[in-house]
């Protein structure tokens, strides 16, 4: 079955998968992008994502309103971001280590309070049909997108535009590129980074809400499987460009769909490696595209991860 029909099936599945799976990657990477642009790295977004997923599901179940769940997930994420931002602003504290600690803390809290919500079925987010023009039910299905996906795209554009064209964007970029320069401009570096981390956490929390309330659409402890961490890698190969983050998120989603898609046309051999495609792909792209000889284009100069 390795013929053209099979190829089309796989291609279609990867495109559909990209649309389905990319949203959490997009939100987390945009949040991380904002935080990193301000010169700080937050590895804890995995914990934020998981806690966001749990809290969104819990709130949706308790109140019957999934959108309220999304908002609460965002606020919870913002609080996690704020804790991270607060601790990192203390002298001598390593932001990568704080991120790992926050990941542990967030995941732990989510599992702790999430026990009661594994069983119940919470109302889920609705979808918007963008495939009205097609007669093919599969195409229509693939284009049933969640509003958050569209919000994510808009957010990517707004961030991309905002970094270039607004004073706020300039302040964030300057803070990330050179703290002394920001000080010279009269900017409070710590406040900017604190806010950037908190807002970044908000985005990651919303990404978690997408996981539990839309796709795959339930709360379990294995829900994230490292997506929040992968999103951090994704920001690096998106070169801190919000629009590229969107592209990278789609690519990640597509790569994640590769394994199941190949098996659906009967190719199961080596499925472990197809399932690992997102990780292999990220590593390969990083090896091919990063050079130690020159500094990364777009990399914030203050970022510990690129130093």
């Amino acid at each position: 079955m390795g013929d053209d029909a099979g190829f089309t099936t796989v291609l279609f599945a990867m495109i559909a998968g990209a649309i389905r799976v990319s949203t959490p990657f997009l939100f987390v990477s945009l949040g991380e992008c904002l935080t990193e642009k301000s010169g700080r790295i937050n590895l804890g977004l995995e914990g934020t994502l998981v806690f966001g997923a749990m809290s969104a599901y819990a709130i949706s179940y308790q109140t019957g309103s999934p959108w309220l769940g999304v908002v609460v997930a965002g606020i919870a994420g913002m609080m996690f971001g704020a804790i991270h931002g607060f601790i990192c602003k203390l002298p001598k504290v390593n932001d990568i280590a704080v991120g790992i600690a926050m990941m542990l803390f967030g995941t732990g809290l989510a599992f702790f309070f999430g026990k009661a919500y594994i069983q119940p079925a919470a109302p889920r987010l609705p979808s918007i049909s963008l495939g009205w023009w097609s007669d093919d039910p599969q195409v229509r299905q693939a284009l049933d997108v969640n509003p958050l996906f569209l919000v994510g795209i808009v957010l990517a554009i707004v961030l991309w535009w905002g970094f270039r064209n607004t004073r706020l964007g300039l302040i964030v970029r300057t803070t990330g590129d050179s703290a002394p320069a920001a000080l010279a401009l009269g900017v409070n570096v710590n406040v900017v980074r604190f806010l950037a981390t908190a807002v970044g956490g908000f985005f990651a929390g919303v990404g978690g809400a997408f996981l539990s309330l839309y796709y795959p659409g339930s709360w379990t402890e294995g829900l994230s499987s490292g997506q929040g961490l992968m999103a951090v890698a994704l920001v690096i190969f998106a070169r801190w460009n919000p629009l590229a983050c969107f592209g990278a998120a789609l690519l990640f989603g597509a790569a994640g769909a590769l394994g199941p898609a190949l098996q659906s046309i009967g190719i199961s051999r080596g499925y472990h490696f197809f399932n690992a495609a997102p990780y292999l792909m990220t590593l390969a792209i990083m090896i091919l595209s990063i050079s130690p000889k020159r500094s990364l284009k777009g990399a914030p100069g203050e970022l510990s991860i690129t130093k």
Binding site: G47, A101, M102, F105, T107, G108, F111, K115
Partner: peptide, 10 residues
Amino acid sequence: PDATVLVLQG
């Protein structure tokens, strides 16, 4: 829940 240990570690 078993996650209690995770919370403590965090």
